[in-house]
Amino acid sequence: MINQNSKTLLEVRGLHANVNGIEILKGVDLTVKSGEIHAIMGLNGSGKSTFAKILAGHPAYEVTAGTIIFNDQNLFDLEPEERARAGVFLAFQYPIEIPGVANNQFLRLAYNTVQSQRGKEELDPLEFDDFVREKMKLLEMSPDFLDRSVNEGFSGGEKKRNEILQMALLEPKLAILDETDSGLDIDALRIVANGVNQLTNKDNATILVTHYQRLLDYIVPDYVHVMESGRIIKTSGKELAKELEAHGYDWINTDDRGNTAGVRP
């Protein structure tokens, strides 16, 4: 929901970034206030996943210019784990499988680490078990997933649900969902979207990185941005997604491509 008086959670200015010496981001600007849901759309290779990973602090990407202020802090001063504790959460496009680590062990470790850093109480295994089972209901996940290794042998949809479960546990201020809709059938998409909707509130914000409009039928964005060649070339309301779906990315007229977008209209 848009509320002009809300606090600015994320302020990205002139972000340039390389991977393996190749420039992927070429001046990204984006402002996100608390309570808002933003969708970043674009073709494969436009830089949207790179942008998502940079927000989380992925070491493979080198930021060459620009600034990111997250919740009044310079994001670049924070290690990935510090960002997570400060409230940045990335739901991975391809969640990593970790054979040998039980999911409940991993979830509890993450939860307790973040809790203690935020000066809150940690939960012992029994308390956590009750707590996590409650959260799993939100995502219609079977408790069996607690005893299995992290993401190992999970289907695409199960992995994505496990990501949103982590989001539910860590209660981020800013959640970035990287192609969370990819590989989901319609039922799984509905469940995941429903979970996300229940987690969004006036004090947090969500960035949906997606290729398709489909997810946005379920999680309705306040803003839709189009990314191309490492820049946000158009920003509009939720109706933009429908236009893109109907006409394709080529539909964006050349006038828009020269404009500064991403900054609040």
């Binding site: 602090g57 990935p80 960002r83 991975f92 990593i96 970790i98 991993f106 993450a110 680490t113 982590q166």
Partner: peptide
């Protein structure tokens, strides 16, 4: 990175 992105040192 996955684990660090969940807050682990």
């Amino acid at each position: 990175f996955y684990l660090k992105s969940r807050g682990l040192s």
